[in-house]
Design a protein around this nucleic acid. Structure first.
Length: 276
DNA sequence: CTACCATCCTGGTTGC
DNA sequence: TGCAACCAGGATGGTA
């Protein structure tokens, strides 16, 4: 499911429930998701206070008092749901439950189990295998045209594939890659190394803007994504090209102008007239 | 470096 | 109605 805006939406939901709260009870209902959970995962966070709920790229990072970090990645189908009162019965694919000292229940559900849970000392943050090679945060001041162009470097791969590379820019996924390229007027097929100067400025701004717009809309709900309250996100109604193959281009009005094709095994949507 | 493929899983949709 | 094929927001690792 989740790209950066969906993860940020989840973070904003979890933060008020968890920050400053003590995890009175933690239960992991299976020993593994994509990877095995570290031994004693649930036991080691039980009784601990959560200092903050942060995000890096598509990773949620919970700072646990005592110097540990709990990492959570939602994979394709992960969801968090918060229950302020008595929670309903467990559902299929509920894999983790946290109950805070104020009686709030937080459940992680992930049918496809591509998600990740990890727990490690905060000294290991910079060198964590999953975090070490991530590129710039697209919403940070460090991300602009020159930074993007530098990340693209001499790559001869298509620009769509390049911005899906988490080392180039962290947090862009398949939906927002197509949407950002449409906003920037750049063809997804364009060779990455040719995106420089003006085009790079435009694309960096388009990435930032589309992510911010999506966050403001609570993310995009296609199948799985929900806010922690259970509410749907609604940015999917603002997609210009994603999922709109065969439709009229909203940019130039060309009938059936939105085309769909496969890049790197994943669907890309674009308008050949608006995007060069 | 690049392209391409398979892999980890389940579930919803599509097409016969 | 049934069933199989296909597709899905991610990411890694292997091969050529």
């Amino acid at each position: 499911m989740p790209e950066l805006p969906e993860v940020e939406t989840v973070r904003r939901g979890l933060a008020p429930a968890l920050e400053g709260a003590v995890i009175a009870k933690a239960t992991a209902f299976r020993p593994d998701l994509r990877f095995p959970l570290p031994p004693g995962f649930a036991e080691n966070i039980t009784g601990k206070r959560v200092d903050s709920v942060d995000r890096r790229a598509k990773y949620l990072l919970l700072r646990i008092a005592g110097g540990m970090v709990m990492l959570s990645h939602l994979g394709m189908s992960g969801r968090y749901r918060i229950y302020k009162d008595a929670p309903p019965a467990l559902e299929p694919h509920d894999h983790l439950e946290l109950v805070t000292d104020s009686g709030v229940t937080i459940r992680y559900n992930d049918p496809r189990r591509f998600g990740i849970l990890d727990l490690f000392p905060e000294e290991g943050l910079a060198t964590h295998k999953l975090l070490a090679s991530l590129g710039p945060e697209p919403l940070s001041n460090a991300f602009d045209g020159p930074a993007l162009a530098a990340g693209l470097g001499d790559k001869r791969t298509a620009i769509k594939l390049a911005i899906l590379d988490q080392r180039v820019v962290a947090g862009v996924g398949n939906i927002y890659a197509s949407e950002a390229l449409f906003r920037a007027g750049i063809s997804p097929k364009r060779t990455a190394r040719t995106v420089k100067r003006g085009r790079a400025d435009k694309l960096a701004a388009a990435i930032r803007d589309v992510l911010n717009d999506a966050i403001a809309a609570g993310g995009s709900s296609l199948r799985d994504h929900r806010q922690t309250s259970g509410e749907l996100g609604y940015f999917q109604h603002s997609f210009k090209v994603y999922g709109r193959g065969g439709e009229t281009c909203p940019g130039c009005g060309t009938e059936a102008g939105i085309r769909q094709f496969v890049q790197g095994g994943r669907s890309t949507f674009y308008c050949a007239k608006c995007q060069r």
